[in-house]
Write a protein that binds this DNA or RNA. Structure first.
Lengths: 105, 105
DNA sequence: AGCCGCCGTTCACAGCCTTTTCACAACCCG
DNA sequence: CGGGTTGTGAAAAGGCTGTGAACGGCGGCT
């Protein structure tokens, strides 16, 4: 993935794509490469609704197939890890029929 | 739906079809796809009386049947959500026997 | 090589949200 | 008032999403 920025902050999240790390409330998250790529893609588009297709194109660098559930599965894993790190806070919102949105509020 | 514009303003409403969002008084509305499509169709024709048939053709992309109440039901839902967001203000007007009109005054 | 652990992909199915349909009340207008 | 039109809650139908689990590939280690 390219086009990344050195450092991005979304609420209590800090993402450093160039260093392949992300922090939640100061503590490092244990993310895999795909998870970090997906989180980065969302962070670069914070507060915007991003379609599954766009996410797939950017993170997987391939053409999206309507039946592919990869994005959903990785969203679930991100939610899980973010939820463990920072409870009582929803970062990733579902937009039914479109995709997802990472919120900074 | 196509032919949409990047950004439309009607009174305190702002609609951004390309981003799949609409704001009422600065706050985002929680609209479904159909609701947003219908609001967009009305906004594109603001201050004009639009027939049910035209709305159905544009939003549902299908031929309108006189007995179909879908447009009415979605108008009701839009009114509900707009009313919650901006009370004491009627945006969608009924024109008996013809259709509806979104007003900007 | 064989084993092990981790990661990415795919599948299945429950649960959820949206859309459509229906029924009846309320409304408009001649 | 009467007939057609519109408003709206509720239920049915349809489609989408969440998520645990299974599978296979890959790399590291002994």
């Amino acid at each position: 993935m390219d086009g990344t920025v050195g450092r991005m902050v979304v609420g209590d999240l800090e993402i450093r794509p160039s260093e392949y790390v992300a922090y939640a409330g100061g503590r490092p998250l244990r993310l895999t490469v795909r998870e970090l790529d997906l989180l980065t893609a969302l962070a670069e588009r914070r507060d915007r609704i991003v379609s599954r297709e766009e996410l797939y194109r950017v993170v997987w660098e391939d053409q999206y197939r309507r039946t592919d559930r990869s994005v959903d599965v990785y969203i679930a894993r991100l939610r899980q890890k973010l939820g463990e790190a920072i409870p009582d806070r929803e970062y990733i919102h579902t937009h039914f029929g479109f995709g997802y949105r990472l919120s900074s509020e």
